[in-house]
Simulated assay, not measured.
Amino acid sequence: MSIKPTDNGREIPWIDAWARPVVRLHPSPGKAERSESHLGGPMLWPHDEPWPHCDGADHVGNYDLTDDQVRGLRTPFAGCAQLYQADFPELPFPDGTDLLQVFLCTIEHEDIFGPDARLVWRAASQVTDPLDDQPAPVLVDPRYVFRPCVFNPCRATQYPRTCELPHELLDELEFLNNDGVDPAGNRSWPTFGDASKIGGWTRWFAAGPGDSECPECGTLRVQLLALSEHEVECTECDRPESAHMGWQLLGGGGALNFLACPNDVHHPVQLLLE
C-alpha cells in the first residue's frame, strides 16, 4: 500500500503532495460486543431513540414480490459497522463524538445498484440505556448479508491512480504515452485492490473519477470509508488475501465506498459501488 510511484524508476518530485494516509481494516470473522469496533455486530443504540429506517422510495429487485410491493417498503436498516475513536483516531469525528456507526439497507437501491447506507456520529458515553432488542430488516437480499467480523488494522500511505491526477502532471511522466496510458501495463505505478479501509484513495473499477462535489458547499468529497467484499494481500503488514466477507457487490468483486465532505461530515455522503 505504501510503495511510492516512480516514473520508470525515476523519483517524482511532486508525488508526496498526493499521498494520503490509509488504515486497512483487515476484517476477519469474529464476535464483538457493542462497546467494541466491529463489522456486523450489535450496535450501541439508545433504547429511547428511533432506530433508522429506509422509506423504500428507491427500492428495486426481484424478491418474490411485485415492483410496487418492493418500492416503498419501509424497513429497518441493519447495523453494519461501528468504529470507535479510540481505535481509529484518523476518522474526522465531529466535536463531542467518538463513535461512527454505519447502517445498511439490505434491499437494492435503484440509483446505487446496491444497498443504501446511513452514517451516525455519536458520543458513546451518552448511551446510558442501550437497546437490547434491535430491529431486523423486513426484507434481506442475500447478496448484502455480511459475516460478523472484528478488525485487525494496519496503517500505511496510499498514492492515487493516474486517473486522479491533473493532465499537466501526467504530461511530465515519461512512462505514459500521449493518451495518458501506460503501454507497459502500469508497471511503473503501484496499484491497489480490494480492501476495507479508512481514508486513502478510491479504487475506481467500473468507472473513473466522477462528479463528487458536496452539494452543500461545493467542496470535493474524499474517501471516508470503504467496505469491501474481500481483502487483497497487504504489503504493509504481510497479511495474505483474506476470505470473502460474505456479501457480494457488483456481482462478485467490489466495495461500498463512502465519500464525505472534508468540511463537514454531516453534509450529504456520496455512496459508490466500485
Rank of each mutant, 00 (worst) to 15 (best):
M1L: 04
S2G: 14
T6D: 07
I15N: 00
D16G: 08
W18R: 01
W18P: 02
W18H: 05
W18M: 00
R20S: 10
P21F: 00
P21V: 01
P21H: 04
L25P: 00
S28G: 12
G30T: 00
K31H: 12
A32N: 01
E33G: 12
R34I: 04
R34F: 11
R34G: 11
S35V: 09
G40M: 03
G41C: 10
M43I: 15
W45M: 07
P46W: 01
P46D: 10
H47D: 15
C54M: 11
D55Y: 01
D55G: 01
D55I: 00
G56C: 06
A57D: 14
V60C: 02
N62V: 13
Y63L: 06
Y63R: 03
D64N: 14
T66A: 12
D68A: 14
L73S: 02
T75Y: 03
P76G: 05
A78H: 12
G79K: 01
G79Y: 02
A81R: 05
Q85M: 14
E90S: 13
L91N: 03
P92V: 05
Q101V: 08
F103A: 06
L104E: 15
L104C: 13
T106R: 04
E108Q: 12
E108I: 02
W121A: 04
A124D: 11
V127I: 15
D129L: 15
D129G: 12
P130I: 03
L131T: 07
L131R: 09
D132C: 12
D132K: 11
Q134T: 08
P137E: 03
V138C: 15
V138F: 13
D141M: 02
D141R: 00
V145K: 12
F146A: 14
C149K: 02
V150L: 07
N152K: 08
P153K: 03
P153Q: 05
P153N: 04
P153M: 03
R155W: 07
R155V: 09
Q158D: 03
P160G: 06
P160E: 01
P160T: 04
T162P: 03
E164T: 06
E164I: 01
L165T: 05
P166W: 08
D171K: 12
D171F: 03
L173K: 06
F175K: 00
N177M: 05
V181N: 09
D182G: 02
D182M: 02
A184K: 08
S188V: 00
P190G: 03
T191K: 11
G193A: 10
G193R: 05
D194W: 14
S196T: 08
G199R: 09
G199S: 09
W201L: 00
R203T: 08
W204Q: 08
A206W: 13
A206K: 15
A206L: 14
G208I: 00
P209E: 06
S212I: 14
S212W: 15
P215C: 04
G218W: 02
T219N: 14
L220I: 11
V222A: 09
V222C: 04
L224R: 01
A226L: 06
A226E: 10
E229T: 04
V232K: 10
E233Q: 12
C234W: 01
E236W: 06
C237L: 04
C237R: 02
C237H: 01
D238M: 09
P240C: 00
H244M: 06
M245A: 14
Q248C: 15
L250S: 15
F258P: 07
F258Q: 02
C261G: 04
C261L: 06
H266T: 15
P268F: 08
L272V: 15
L273I: 13
L273W: 09
